[in-house]
Design a protein around this nucleic acid. Sequence first.
DNA 1: ACGGAGATGTCAGTGGATGACATCGACGCT
DNA 2: AGCGTCGATGTCATCCACTGACATCTCCGT
Lengths: 185, 185
Amino acid sequence: MSRWEPDGRRRLQEAALELYAEQGFSRTTAAAVAERAGLTERTFFRYFADKKEVLFGNEERLQAVFVDAVSATPDTTPPRDAVAAGLEALAAELGPHRESVLRRTAVITSEADLRERELMKLASWSAALATVLRERGADAPDLVAEVAVAVFRVAFRRWVDGPADGDLAAHLRGALAELAVFDGT
Amino acid sequence: MSRWEPDGRRRLQEAALELYAEQGFSRTTAAAVAERAGLTERTFFRYFADKKEVLFGNEERLQAVFVDAVSATPDTTPPRDAVAAGLEALAAELGPHRESVLRRTAVITSEADLRERELMKLASWSAALATVLRERGADAPDLVAEVAVAVFRVAFRRWVDGPADGDLAAHLRGALAELAVFDGT
DNA sequence: ACGGAGATGTCAGTGGATGACATCGACGCT
DNA sequence: AGCGTCGATGTCATCCACTGACATCTCCGT
């Protein structure tokens, strides 16, 4: 037995999501979140760098899923297909949890500070992807990475705004296909 | 004669850029910026919503330049060319001021909070662009807008990191052309 | 039993941000 | 000239995000 209940970090994440959803992010104090989790404000800030970060505990893993799936693809895979593999992996990860994804997304989109932080996380995906693409000698790794994330962003938004039985993977394939509007001349 | 020196807003912007560059953003207090501008901290926050915003006073105008240039294009213009027009307009706006752009960019890239805010501004460009594209009945307006901004981001970064005589417009055209890596099956 | 290691608590302080109210000079009106 | 309003700024008080320094407690190995 520990001196404290276990899983402080998870309790803080759950408390934060609840409170932010109930009262809004800006009207919720870090102390209030900590209290609901049975902890102290000081401890909150030991687990999370700031009030926003508590909502982004899984982003690191998602980034790894995305980037690793691209990495797992043969070096000779055309960029489009490599990116598709990464996006499929994300769909497999997120698709089955639409409910909780929606709950979290609703909170995030409701406040500019949180949208900002989310953009930062996606920028981090892009940077990580560009790095692995560069290492495998792909063409225009930076551009490909940015576009890949742009595709994700668009498809994700459509999925979230769409019907409850929407298919994230299908949206991703659809958005990827729409890149064809830039084809030719 | 006014009771105070004129141009408080501009003085604050200049003071902020100087101090942020000299000492770093996080080690500069809002009060210090205000003081250098001959004003009060309270007044600082009347002009700018927060400490970061003072660095982004021109973003609104740039967004308008970008979006208006796309709007000015005939409704039947292929997406790629419409986007190109917007990007050319941005190049015309930014290209001649590489020095000051670099100074500002150096400050922004040096702190995560500021990079975050910049991502937010670009997201705003994308949203505005998507709106005008949607109004003119373009295909996949959201995707096109996101990709357009992705292209800008990449080209801008290459321009900033490149030689002093680099040509932003050329980088933009180059990045746009690289979208061809997504072509075909 | 002892002592270190980890996780948490306590306390004090800094600085970002905001609301309420006061002040001052410019300007127009009579 | 005298007056009143308006806009820009200053002053003051307050909240809260975040941080550093130090204390405390439990577990675990020796």
